[in-house]
Amino acid sequence: MLNIMLVDDSRIITRTLSKIMHNSRINVVGIASNGEEAVTMYQELQPDIVTMDITMPIMNGIEALKAIKEFDDKARVIMITSHGEERLVMDAISFGAKGYILKPITPLKVKQALQKAYPKFSEMIEENYLAMTLAY
């Protein structure tokens, strides 16, 4: 079972993501609503994958990514981004983000990003994808 942690200040986004994750049998272990919370939560939960919004209050996604990477060099972080944030995404990638999902979020985009970030689980994700799209 893949453990995932969601970081986003928008409840709509986390709700959508949770739904998709749930349908693809990925375990959402935690939801943080800002960068600071995300860093402490990551240290506590040590999930396999993190999805991270870029623009957030208190501590933005890039800073949180840096902090998480400092703590765990192997952390797999996928950025959630929208059009116009390309430069920030590039920064995030330079700091070690494993991928990004461009809003609006769809099951297909989530699947592709997860597969790229975590090839080990690629097959499992593929298997559940059908169920995921059907339920979406």
């Binding site: 390309e86 430069r87 590039m90 990638i93 330079s94 983000a97 494993k98 991928g99 990004y100």
Partner: peptide, 17 residues
């Protein structure tokens, strides 16, 4: 910017991103 960052990086994964 993307090309600049690609030429500075040597990780294939990162370059693809």
């Amino acid at each position: 910017e993307a090309i600049k960052r690609c030429s500075q990086s040597d990780e294939a994964e990162m370059i693809t991103l």
